[in-house]
Computed example of a mutant assay.
Amino acid sequence: MRVIHTLAELREALAGQTNTAFVPTMGNLHEGHLSLVREAARLGGPVVVSIFVNRLQFLPHEDFDQYPRTLARDCELLAPAGCDIVFAPSEAELYPVKQTYKVTPPAGLADLLEGEFRPGFFTGVCTVVMKLFQCVQPAVAVFGQKDYQQLKVIKGMAEQFAMPVQVIGAPTVRADDGLALSSRNGYLGTDERLEAVALSKALQHLADAARDPKQTLAGMEAAAAEELRQRGWAPDYLTLRRRTDLLPPTDAERAAGEPLVALGAARLGATRLIDNLEL
């Protein structure tokens, strides 16, 4: 496995490759990331994993400076998972001048849910992913379904720009108690870690109620949020949406079996966690 820090060296290493598989990350890797790498390796071709903490997707009050940088440990994990190249550029390498050209996704998809609570987040995500796609020029890119809205945004970007890359979503990896694996789980204290699984349980309760015609959408969502609030959480949203466009389903669509997804974001202490559950 090679660790590459410059775009020139990356392009030299990938010269002539037409079936590269790519997994973009911000590092501080866990089993969820490694499952994406193994999926990329299964597809054949060289596997490139990028490690870059992208300033553009952090709001001013968020944890950009505190976000863990663990490159040496990450590389130890990546080699046996099937990674061939780690692309770990510095900020000056990826953004040699101020990034004034940016990719702005459609408000109808990007300004709800995560976009409502983290304004500009998906512009930062799309901009760095577009740039990394141009650097790596992969045939396929693998993203986790835990970031459900992000996956939809990136798929839409690749399709609308006719990018020659297939964007694949891989299932969320969970701990034994059901907590979705996340780099931010490392911020949780011992008691908070035990409590954190309540988010996935609240989403399961929301999903269980979704097909009950006696339940209103607003009532179900309010009950799910209150379930967490009573346990000391600060919910941003717990909601039921159509998988196709992440808009709220009608009662008729719920009754007819429209593919739905329950999504949630909430703070437990100082840590903001997200999760989702398809139904």
Rank of each mutant, 00 (worst) to 15 (best):
S50N: 09
Q134G: 14
G44E: 01
V103R: 00
F64I: 04
Q150P: 10
L94W: 09
L34R: 03
Q99A: 14
G232Q: 04
E226M: 03
L71C: 04
Q17R: 13
R242Y: 08
H5C: 02
A207E: 07
L199Q: 04
C75S: 10
E39N: 06
F58V: 02
C75D: 09
M163Y: 13
F133I: 12
L36W: 11
L43R: 13
P249N: 06
G169K: 06
A209E: 14
L228H: 01
A162N: 10
Q137D: 12
A175S: 12
D177M: 01
A21L: 05
F117R: 04
V142Q: 08
F87N: 02
M130N: 14
L181M: 15
G257Q: 09
T250S: 15
D63C: 09
P24Y: 07
K131E: 13
D212P: 09
L263R: 01
H205D: 07
R272G: 06
T123A: 12
L260I: 03
S35A: 15
D275L: 03
E226Y: 01
A88T: 06
A170Q: 12
A8R: 14
Q150S: 04
K214P: 00
L188V: 03
F52P: 07
T250K: 07
R174V: 10
L151Q: 10
V165G: 02
N276S: 03
E62G: 07
P138K: 02
G186M: 05
F117H: 15
Y67V: 07
Y67C: 02
D111R: 12
K155N: 11
F52A: 07
A218M: 01
L7E: 13
V136W: 07
E39T: 14
A252G: 04
S50M: 06
P213A: 04
Y101R: 09
V48P: 08
E221K: 02
N185S: 11
P164I: 12
E159P: 00
V53A: 12
H33S: 00
A139F: 01
V142H: 05
Q215N: 10
A255S: 12
M157C: 05
L112V: 12
A141V: 07
A158Y: 06
L94V: 11
A141N: 09
L238D: 04
P68V: 00
A92R: 15
M157V: 07
A72T: 10
A256E: 14
A256N: 11
R241K: 13
T190N: 04
T271G: 08
P60C: 13
Q150T: 07
L273Y: 10
M1E: 10
T239Q: 07
P138C: 06
A88H: 11
P171M: 00
F122A: 00
R2N: 13
Q66M: 02
F161D: 02
R11M: 01
D251M: 09
M26P: 12
L260H: 11
P106Q: 05
P138V: 00
H33P: 12
E195L: 14
M1C: 08
E39S: 13
V86F: 08
R55Y: 13
V165S: 05
